Simulated assay, not measured.
Amino acid sequence: MGVVVSIVLYNNDRAILSHAISSGLASKSVSKFFLVDNSPTDALKNISDDERIIYIHNPSNPGFGAAHNIAIEQSIEMGADFHLVLNPDVYFNEGTIENIVSYMRGNPEIGNLMPKVLYPNGEIQYLCKLLPTPYDWIGRRFNPFKKLVDKRNQIFELRFTNYDKIMEVPYLSGCFMFLRLSAIKKLGVFDDGIFMYGEETDLCRRLISGGYKTIFYPEATIYHHFEKGSHKSWRLTKIGMQSAIYYFNKWGWFFDKERVNINKRTLQKLRKTD
């Protein structure tokens, strides 16, 4: 079995969600497509009648990563090679998944891949990052000095690379995670102690620690509406802060030698090829 896809739902816009689903179903490489619905009601249950769709209503809402884990664990049981964690506001052209599968099969050391991500208007999204420090995740959010934030983003978001080449990046966005399931079987699924925000960082880090690469692959392109909900809602900001605290309690706040070494190695390599 080739690729299984999962989207976690929560009271989504039907038109945007339908576009995401149809993008995935356009690929013949996709054998199953999980919709794990954390919404209070099952109003989205009949959004697609494709036979590959498996709808799971999950109103207890255990969080983003925990809901995806339901699908990932079933993918492993099915014997799939790859699992795509997909956001409900992402869409892409036919052939995108086949392109990525071909690259992943030719590079077995890759545990997770993210393509180039654009806004619907064609502008690039800077979703490649170093492993975060407490400033990057907490301080930067509340820093009133835009010039200082922009200066840090040139490094933290690797903007100096121009996002125009294949890169090994330690922290890739969770909007599109193309995961090698043999790696996930060894290293585990999402840490369900993180309700939302940061679960992808934790998983990328475990993949790297386990000897796999996490790769930015601009030879494939996707589109992401990306509304930055945590910047518009105090509730989501609070969830993001709780996730950051959990993450830094797990990996280390200011004394994190592994983070320092991974980030240093990443910058040295990218600056040499820039």
Rank of each mutant, 00 (worst) to 15 (best):
I21L: 05
S75H: 01
T161G: 03
I194R: 04
S31Y: 01
D150L: 15
I208Q: 04
M177S: 15
N38Q: 09
R152I: 09
I21A: 06
S39R: 08
T237R: 04
L179T: 08
Y197L: 11
A66R: 10
V101W: 01
F64Q: 14
D192R: 10
F195H: 11
S173V: 10
L172V: 13
N61G: 11
P218I: 06
F33V: 04
E199M: 05
M241W: 11
F195R: 10
N162Y: 06
I47D: 08
L267G: 04
F64P: 00
N61P: 01
V117A: 11
N69T: 04
I155A: 05
I47R: 10
I262T: 11
G111I: 02
M114S: 13
G188V: 09
R205D: 09
Q242M: 13
F34R: 03
R235G: 01
T133I: 06
I184S: 01
G79T: 03
K264V: 03
N112H: 03
V117C: 13
N87D: 15
F254R: 12
G24T: 11
G174I: 11
I70A: 09
H19S: 15
A71G: 04
V90L: 01
E219S: 13
F178P: 03
A67E: 02
R105C: 07
F34G: 05
V3H: 00
L113C: 12
E199G: 10
Y119N: 13
L148V: 13
L118T: 04
S102V: 01
L9F: 02
D202V: 00
F64C: 07
I16K: 14
E168F: 01
R206G: 08
G79S: 12
K228G: 12
N61S: 12
Y197V: 11
Y91D: 12
K232Y: 08
N87L: 00
K32E: 13
N87I: 00
G188D: 05
S209F: 07
N107I: 02
T41E: 14
I245Y: 10
H68Y: 07
I245N: 09
T96K: 01
K238N: 13
S60I: 15
V169A: 11
Y55Q: 04
I245P: 01
K116V: 00
F176V: 03
I110T: 03
S209A: 15
Y55L: 05
C204W: 04
K186N: 11
K186W: 01
T41Y: 05
F156S: 12
F216M: 06
G193M: 00
R159G: 03
I47T: 10
L172G: 05
D42S: 15
D50M: 03
P120K: 09
R265L: 06
G111S: 10
K129H: 15
E73Y: 02
Y223R: 08
V169I: 15
F33Q: 05
I215L: 11
Q242N: 12
R141K: 14
I53A: 06
N99E: 14
E123C: 00
V101D: 00
N38Y: 06
T161D: 03
R206V: 03
K32H: 13
W253I: 03
R105T: 02
M1H: 06
V4K: 02
L44Q: 14
N261F: 10
C204R: 02
K257H: 08
F145I: 15
F255M: 06
Y197A: 05
A26E: 14
F226S: 11
H57P: 07
